[in-house]
């Protein structure tokens, strides 16, 4: 457990030699000991391909490598922080919500809403949200930011979950996603707006939803 929740908005990370962390630039609140922060464009082991992927996706949130020996406090803008532990599965999360994560996790980029086909394209272009999302895979912990904290909603084969794209934070598990609309939804929010679609998640896993429709 490299991340210890000090309160709902601050996590403490122990930095030990040989186990580096990645964090979003500007997320460091304070540190003690010999800790080096180095800007990193590649982040993770995703390499060139994922870097290009992020560039295309507009998911190029600057990351820093955090190495050395000491203690670091992370937090950002008073946002609530949720620590998610991964044990072999994949977390899908938008890059600008990543506060910090362990270097043991493999980072990649993934097209969100791919099963949505043309609708997916429409959503991304209309709402200006990333079509791509960052994936973190393997064993390790991730600290994710959300406006007003998150709730975790289980996704089970018999109960797909629909999420307002603005409130979507992350999901994990064997979950398929597509863009859909509920009865009456498009008439209500207006066809022209990006909010006309909802993210439908089906399969088995869980989705994290924040208590706000505001993007970070």
């Amino acid at each position: 457990m490299p991340f210890r929740e000090i309160n709902s908005k601050v996590v403490e990370a122990a930095v030990v030699p040989g186990r580096r962390l990645f964090s979003q630039r500007g997320a460091m609140l304070a540190y003690r000991g010999e800790v080096a922060f180095t800007p990193s464009t590649t982040g993770g082991q995703g390499g060139l391909r994922s870097m290009i992927g992020r560039r295309v996706a507009g998911e190029d949130t600057p990351l820093m490598t955090v190495e050395g020996s000491g203690t670091v406090l992370f937090g950002h803008g008073g946002h609530h922080i949720q620590v998610i532990d991964l044990s072999g599965d994949t977390l899908y999360v938008e890059a600008d919500r990543l506060l910090a994560f362990e270097g043991t996790l493999e980072q990649g980029t993934m097209f969100l809403g791919s099963q949505g086909g043309v609708m997916g394209m429409v959503r991304g272009q209309v709402s200006g949200q990333g079509l791509f999302t960052t994936t973190l895979k393997g064993h390790g912990s991730v600290a994710v930011m959300a406006h007003g904290g998150v709730i975790e909603i289980p996704v089970t084969p018999r109960r797909p979950v629909h999420v307002d794209p603005q409130a979507y934070v992350a999901h994990h598990g064997e979950v398929r996603n597509k863009l859909s609309t509920a009865l009456g939804w498009r008439d209500m929010v207006g066809r022209g707006s990006g909010e006309a679609f909802q993210l439908e998640l089906s399969g088995s896993g869980a989705v994290f939803v924040q208590a706000s429709e505001e993007k970070l």
């Binding site: 309160n7 709902s8 601050v10 460091m28 609140l29 304070a30 003690r32 406090l73």
Partner: peptide
């Protein structure tokens, strides 16, 4: 404070904004 106050003891380096 924005979130509960965290009390720390020196030696310490702090982001000025925090």
């Amino acid at each position: 404070s924005n979130g509960p106050v965290v009390f720390m003891e020196p030696p310490l380096r702090v982001d000025p904004q925090a």
